[in-house]
Write a protein that binds this DNA or RNA. Structure first.
Lengths: 147, 147
DNA sequence: TATTGTTATACTCTATAACTATA
DNA sequence: TATAGTTATAGAGTATAACAATA
């Protein structure tokens, strides 16, 4: 293992690991677990019902109940009645939660800077395209192999 | 959000998501959870003590005990006495576990094929280098920001 | 009837702390 | 004393199944 040159996929895997580590550390600093941060992130476009959150997070409704409970207890979100469907609740960030979302968005921009800082515009464009192609292939492979 | 062009970091994040999804599906097909697959993967270079596994997986020794228990019950690994240290155990793949490792290695090669298939040698080289630079920066950022 | 969210229950992964057997 | 691994205990995330309220 040691001393062997890394394959390109190794480097992608390494990037995945580093990403996860960095993000988890960020979330912990903000008092969020990864799962709760993920849910909060899903609200950056506006309030969602728990059902919509379950779909967005690819997780069961029961699971969303627990995550929202935690975020409510921490003061990051509130449950509000849905205006037209009395079965549903809308999960909405509190001001504190919205501020946290802002810092997440900012950290996101900073990450872009860190990762792409010293590349030329052309290199960034090529990388952007290559990543798009890889994503598309991986998506197709998942579709074909796992339905 | 919808319709907006994806930034390069968005594409990296998307790749991370797809990777995790694909791998988790593979592991489930092989009867492995993600954590157990990770441990088994760490054994691809040969047997390790549980202490070494705890370090490799960045996890507590107690946790390794549980994961090894599960893999032993499933017949993927065995605990063997360490030849020179009677406190330690060596975790070794069974033939079944080794076969599983082989399929993991093969799937890895296939992934390389899927992801890089239609790129030119030069494009792959550029991508390889870019990923190396990004990894290095992310590693440094983590080091600086989180110690 | 179908859907939204909850209660009940269980399993996996993770952590800390106390302990045993060895080094 | 220090290290390898286990037992004890606890908490978070996840799932399925049964249920109530509403559509």
């Amino acid at each position: 293992m040691a001393g062997q040159p890394l394959s390109t996929v190794d480097r992608v895997l390494e990037l995945v690991d580093l990403f996860n580590r960095d993000m988890q550390l960020s979330f912990e600093r903000d008092g969020l677990t990864q799962a709760r941060a993920h849910l909060l992130w899903a609200l950056r476009g506006g309030p969602l019902t728990q059902r919509a959150l379950a779909d967005a997070l690819a997780v069961t409704p029961r699971n969303v109940t627990g995550l929202v409970d935690g975020l409510v207890a921490a003061g990051h979100v509130v449950r509000e009645p849905h205006p037209s469907d009395r079965r549903a609740v809308l999960v909405t960030p509190t001001p504190a939660g919205a501020a946290l979302l802002d810092t997440m968005v900012a950290g996101y921009g900073e990450l872009e800077e860190v990762l792409l800082g010293a590349f030329s515009a052309r290199q960034v464009r090529d990388l952007h395209r290559a990543l798009g192609v890889m994503n598309e292939r991986l998506r197709r492979r998942i579709e074909e192999e796992w339905g």
